[in-house]
Simulated scan of single mutants.
Amino acid sequence: MEVRHASHPEDVKQFDTNKLRERFLIEDLFVSDQVNMVYSHYDRMIVGGAQPVDETLTLDEEDTLKTEFFLERREIGFINIGGLAVLEIDGESYELSRLDALYVGKGKEQVKLSSIDPNQPAKLYFCSCPAHEKLPIQKATIENANPLNLGSKDACNERTIYQYIHEGGLQSCQLMLGLTILKLGSIWNTMPAHLHDRRMEAYLYFDLEEQARVLHLMGEPNETRHIIVKNEQAVISPSWSIHSGSGTSNYSFIWAMAGENYTFKDMDMVNIEDLK
């Protein structure tokens, strides 16, 4: 697991492109028969990806976490963006189709990840954060996630937010996780921008063609920066940073938050005239 420390916003003002990408972009999450993870010191969120093909993968990182098992003091949320997956949690099996989500609470000792068909392997994206109580395993499909339809065709930001793990859906200690899908012809998300100093956020961008890109906007409102992101790459967004994006085509992204509160609507809106 790669460990990334938090960066002060005053320091980030001095970063060049390579340094921004090194600190905030996660490039290679999905590699055949590997689990790849980044431990962020922003709210101690772990962002990871697993692509089981011919092997069953085990979620484990004793050396970094210094615990007997991964979920000893953590909770985790998965969304599958690939072929049919099987997650075996302490001997109980759960199948995840594409865009299904699974919440696994603190205290589960063994998590195994596999694909039904190696020719159509699963791609399991996950985010994990510290937890203070044990909650049951819960599954959601995109059909029973809570949809929020936002934006307009004129503003090029028609999109549906699907809330999976949140105060009105799958229950957790502090993790919130969901999926946003932009409609054909729409390219903007979260504009006008916002931030929430009570929570960090992580994004996984996907459903992009090989030559398509997303311009991920970050930074303080009066000191914005950008990162060019391609398909199936993730970005860590600090609590002090805006998080918005514009694509060369429509796209989808998975968002996950952890931090002080458990209120999805807790956002500090930024007037567009204040962005610089």
Rank of each mutant, 00 (worst) to 15 (best):
D197C: 01
G107N: 08
C173G: 13
E109R: 15
A212N: 14
G107P: 12
L25R: 12
L135T: 04
P136S: 11
V86M: 10
L65T: 12
I81D: 03
I165D: 09
L87G: 10
I254K: 11
F30C: 08
E109S: 14
E232G: 02
L20V: 07
S32E: 15
G82Q: 06
K276D: 12
K108N: 15
Y42D: 02
K106A: 03
Q138R: 12
K112D: 10
F206E: 03
Y39C: 01
Q120T: 13
N250H: 15
Y203H: 11
A140Y: 01
Y164L: 05
S93Q: 15
V3I: 15
N18S: 13
F264W: 15
G169Q: 04
W188T: 04
K276P: 00
I228D: 11
H194R: 02
M37Y: 00
S97E: 14
T248Q: 03
D16W: 07
R199D: 01
Y94V: 13
Q211R: 12
I161C: 04
N146Q: 14
V111A: 07
S239D: 12
L217Y: 14
L184W: 00
D54I: 03
I254D: 04
L113T: 09
Y203F: 14
L99D: 14
Y205N: 09
F206H: 15
K106F: 00
F253N: 09
W240D: 02
S115Q: 06
H194L: 02
D117E: 11
N144K: 10
L59G: 08
Y162C: 08
P192W: 10
T180C: 14
P221Q: 06
M267L: 13
E273R: 12
A50Q: 07
Q171F: 01
E95F: 06
Q34L: 08
I272K: 10
N18T: 09
N157D: 15
M257Y: 04
Q138F: 07
V12D: 10
R74K: 13
D16K: 10
L177Y: 14
H226K: 12
L25H: 05
E223A: 14
Y162G: 03
E95H: 09
I165L: 13
F206W: 10
Y42W: 12
L102A: 11
D197S: 11
K265S: 13
H196A: 04
P118Y: 04
D16M: 03
H166W: 15
S152G: 11
A193P: 00
D33H: 02
H166T: 06
E220I: 02
Y94W: 11
A101V: 08
L215K: 12
M200R: 05
S114L: 11
E68C: 01
G178S: 11
E68V: 03
D16H: 13
H132Y: 11
K230T: 15
T64M: 11
I236E: 00
A258C: 12
S32F: 02
R21P: 00
I272G: 01
L184G: 06
L135Y: 02
I181C: 12
H216S: 10
I227K: 08
L175H: 06
V35D: 04
F15C: 04
Q14P: 00
T58M: 05
E232Y: 02
Y251I: 03
